[in-house]
Simulated scan of single mutants.
Amino acid sequence: MIRYTLRCAKDHHFESWFADSAAYDKQAKRGLVTCPNCGSTKVEKSLMAPQLGRTERQKSSRKKAATPAVANEASPIAMMSDGERELRTKLKELRDHVVKNATDVGAKFPEEARKMHYGESETRSIYGEASFDDAKALHEEGIEVLPLPVLPDDRN
């Protein structure tokens, strides 16, 4: 089992357990990982530090230590492999291409996608916002949609 610290597009932080890294990737890809606060399926792994086993001596000395100052508190961190870095670059290129070449319809995305699918409006590339339930309903109607990747670098 692996515990991930996760963050949604609205910057809600939460934790969840998965059988392994592949299980998280599979569930996230299918839109099954959702924020418990807002229901967003735009969820990504947040930086986190591994939990290492400690000796009894380290555990007892840590209990005796004074509360650390905010600046000295541990924060979650991770190292990216070359493959992860390349994947992140490709996802950013994909997202940038969509944003550059499509129309942002915002919260009207489900409505606009249906109009185009059923021939009520001209077909064009669009992007916007949809709840998990809206995206699922669109998929069930045969309307092809996919989540637009949001990367942590976008918030810096």
Rank of each mutant, 00 (worst) to 15 (best):
S125G: 10
L52I: 10
E84P: 08
A65K: 01
P147N: 09
E44L: 08
P50M: 00
K92H: 14
P147E: 00
Q27N: 13
L94Q: 10
G142P: 03
L146N: 13
K59A: 08
N101H: 07
P110Y: 02
G39R: 01
E120F: 10
M80F: 14
N156L: 14
E15W: 15
G31W: 04
V145I: 12
F132T: 15
M116G: 05
K29Q: 15
A49I: 00
K115A: 01
Y127N: 08
A19I: 06
N72A: 10
C38M: 04
T55P: 02
R88C: 14
D82S: 14
V43Y: 01
G39Q: 07
K64N: 14
T41N: 00
K92Y: 06
G106L: 12
T55R: 03
V33E: 01
S40T: 03
L6P: 03
L6N: 01
R88P: 06
R30F: 07
S16R: 06
K42C: 15
D20M: 08
G39Y: 03
S40V: 00
R88K: 15
T123F: 03
G53W: 13
S75W: 15
A9D: 10
P152A: 07
R57N: 09
T103Y: 12
K59L: 10
D25I: 06
S81E: 06
P149S: 02
I126F: 01
Y24N: 03
E84G: 13
A71H: 08
F109V: 01
I126R: 07
M80W: 12
G53M: 11
T41F: 04
N156A: 15
